[in-house]
């Protein structure tokens, strides 16, 4: 290779290190607006706290101290783990129910009409009602959070499943009929993959609903979990404690969004992403 050509070639095809730096740079530009929002919120809060000078609105330093205390003691991880485990169990129950009800409702009109009142009821009843009823019915047991979460999020998930099934191109169904594809192949290769995008979106909405229900259940009927911790900080009039637990759980949820939902989204809908390139 001629001596003069080398720098030029190196310039055109950057090494792995340079490519990595470029990728980090692109990511920083992408997340900059979100970081800017967080900084603005923190500054605004601090200005408000200083101007009000009230123990009911603690400053950023106090809240950060409370966060540090519950994280370093390990309590945050234990309590978030307990709450997430309850959400996961309720979520699995709701998921199975909504697949059964959603697929049959989308395919058979009488089934849809049969379940319609229950879905409408479920969508309109506040999570607070399910939480109270389940505490009354099941007391201090695992069934309380699991059932109340399932009752709270199943209607929204059913709607997502119905929407996903109805979105399947009728031409594809016709193709499956002409080639006489077995029922199992249709389910695994057509119905479930077609459901993935709407299930992921529905899953995110359901997860946020589940969080609202579980906090109430833990406040009213349980002796551990993030909701219980928020309630005990409230009982002690410890405002920075309430905010700290809320913030720590919010960070846990963010982690879940980026580490689970977005990874699943990229993996399961990679055919869409490649198509858009």
């Amino acid at each position: 290779m001629p001596e003069l050509a080398r720098p030029l070639i190196r310039h055109r095809s950057p090494g792995r290190g340079a490519a990595g730096l470029l990728a980090i740079g692109r990511w920083l530009v992408k997340v900059a607006p979100a970081v800017a929002f967080c900084l603005l919120a923190i500054i605004s809060w601090e200005v408000m706290a200083r101007s009000l000078a009230s123990p009911l609105v603690p400053g950023v330093g106090k809240i950060a101290g409370a966060c540090e205390s519950i994280v370093l003691s390990g309590e945050a991880f234990t309590q978030i783990g307990i709450t997430l485990w309850r959400i996961a169990l309720g979520f699995v129950l709701a998921f199975v129910l909504s697949l059964l009800v959603g697929i049959s409702s989308a395919r058979y009109d009488p089934v849809r009409v049969f379940f319609e009142p229950a879905i409408l009821l479920g969508l309109t009843v506040p999570g607070l009602v399910w939480a109270l009823l389940c505490v009354i019915w099941f007391g201090v047991s695992l069934a309380t959070p699991v059932v109340s979460i399932a009752l709270g999020i199943t209607p929204a998930l059913v709607l997502s499943v119905v929407q996903g099934i109805r979105g399947v191109d009728p031409d594809i169904i016709e193709m499956a009929h002409v080639y006489q594809l077995p029922r199992r192949t249709r389910l695994m290769k057509i119905w479930l993959p077609a459901l993935v995008p709407s299930l992921l979106n529905g899953g995110r909405v359901a997860f946020s609903l589940a969080w609202k229900v579980i906090v109430l259940v833990e406040i009213f009927g349980l002796s551990d979990g993030v909701g219980y911790q928020i309630n005990s900080q409230f009982s002690m009039q410890n405002v920075e404690g309430v905010i700290a637990w809320t913030l720590v759980f919010w960070l846990g949820m963010l982690l879940l969004e980026y580490a689970v939902f977005q990874v699943l989204d990229r993996r399961l809908t990679r055919w869409q992403r490649r198509a858009s390139v």
Binding site: D171, I172, M175, Y179, K189, W271
Partner: peptide, 24 residues
């Protein structure tokens, strides 16, 4: 045994070319 070529190809977008053929 029936083979059909429709006006529109009617492929499953989430399956690869190979899997679309193997599907039937």
């Amino acid at each position: 045994r029936l083979g059909v070529a429709f006006q529109q190809p009617r492929l499953l977008d989430w399956l690869s070319v190979r899997d679309n053929i193997t599907l039937v």
